[in-house]
Computed example of a mutant assay.
Amino acid sequence: MSYKQIKWMILLIPTLTVGIWEYVRHQFLLPYISMDLGNWLTPVIVYVVSITLVTKLFRNMERIQKELEKERAAKAVLESREKLAKELHDGIAQSLFLLSVQVERLELQRKQEKQLDEVYAIRKTVHEVNRYVRQSIANLRYDAQSHTAQPTLDSIALHNQIGRIIGDTPIPIELEWHIEDDVFTAKEKIELLACLREAVVNIQKHAKASQGWIKGEDKNGYRKITIKDNGRGFTVDPFTLKDRYGLHIMKERLKAMNWNLRLVREQESTILEFSQDGEHV
């Protein structure tokens, strides 16, 4: 029943009740009920009907009103998040990208080893901040597309957010997830999601893979996340290269949570593992 229908029912039920009662009383009950008794019974009947029917309608109307207020509040939050995401993208993210290009030009111009080390440090910082900003933009926009009343990162399961990242990737990636969402803290969700996003980007841009796999396992409290692809892999340890900023940042994120990172090449596949409490399988 709609909000408008409820309002009309609240107005019409007492009126119709009085009308029907007066008609029945005058047409059929006058020989049995006196005029004074009938006058006393009229408000009693209206009261009983109001308590049984109209009160329920009022409750429904209040419930609908609360739902509308929640929807308005959620819409306001989503609009503000979208506005903030746009401002981050148009302002900070583009400025950081320009700064990254300028530092890269500086790197090409300067060949001294000491200067190159400084440039690498600057580029790493810029790269890290740029990824933080873009991650914030992605989180804001993902949550803004959610239909939940309280659009927060913690309100959406990590499994679903990984699925969204995969959905935005042109390369087919199979997801197999066996870890309950409540075993992660809010910080772990944010950090793991950032690492997984970086891993998926690497599969798409650097590995030149045609297929990827993501698997989450929880064996007796030891949690492991495996990202695998059939790309071209690597010939030297990527962690020894200074310009692999994404991998270095990923390793630092996991280390801060006491998680481990392992990157290996096995049977023409590249395997990246995040594991907790030293578990390597």
Rank of each mutant, 00 (worst) to 15 (best):
K124C: 11
K124Y: 07
K124M: 06
T125M: 06
V126K: 00
H127C: 06
E128A: 13
E128Q: 10
E128V: 03
E128S: 13
V129K: 11
V129A: 05
V129C: 07
N130T: 06
N130V: 00
N130S: 15
N130Y: 15
N130K: 12
R131H: 10
R131M: 07
Y132S: 13
Y132R: 10
Y132T: 09
Y132L: 06
Y132M: 14
V133T: 12
V133I: 15
R134W: 01
R134N: 15
Q135L: 11
S136A: 07
S136H: 05
S136Y: 01
I137C: 01
I137P: 04
I137W: 12
I137V: 11
A138Q: 15
A138N: 14
A138R: 11
A138T: 14
N139C: 02
N139I: 01
N139G: 08
N139S: 11
L140M: 10
L140Q: 02
L140H: 05
R141Q: 11
R141V: 15
Y142F: 08
A144D: 06
A144W: 08
Q145L: 13
Q145W: 10
S146F: 02
S146H: 11
S146A: 09
S146P: 05
H147D: 15
H147V: 08
T148K: 12
T148R: 06
A149Q: 05
A149I: 03
A149F: 00
Q150T: 09
Q150N: 12
Q150M: 10
Q150H: 08
P151Y: 10
P151L: 11
T152D: 08
T152R: 07
T152Q: 10
L153E: 06
L153M: 06
D154P: 01
D154V: 09
S155V: 02
S155E: 13
S155K: 09
I156E: 14
I156S: 00
I156Q: 02
I156G: 01
I156M: 04
A157P: 01
A157I: 00
A157H: 13
A157R: 11
L158V: 04
L158H: 00
L158N: 11
H159N: 12
N160I: 08
N160Q: 13
N160D: 15
N160M: 02
N160V: 10
I162E: 01
I162W: 03
I162L: 09
I162Y: 01
I162G: 09
G163T: 11
G163D: 08
G163S: 05
I165P: 00
I165Q: 14
I165C: 05
I165A: 12
I166S: 03
I166A: 05
G167F: 10
G167S: 14
G167K: 05
D168K: 08
D168R: 02
D168W: 03
T169F: 03
T169Y: 07
T169M: 07
T169C: 15
P170R: 10
P170W: 10
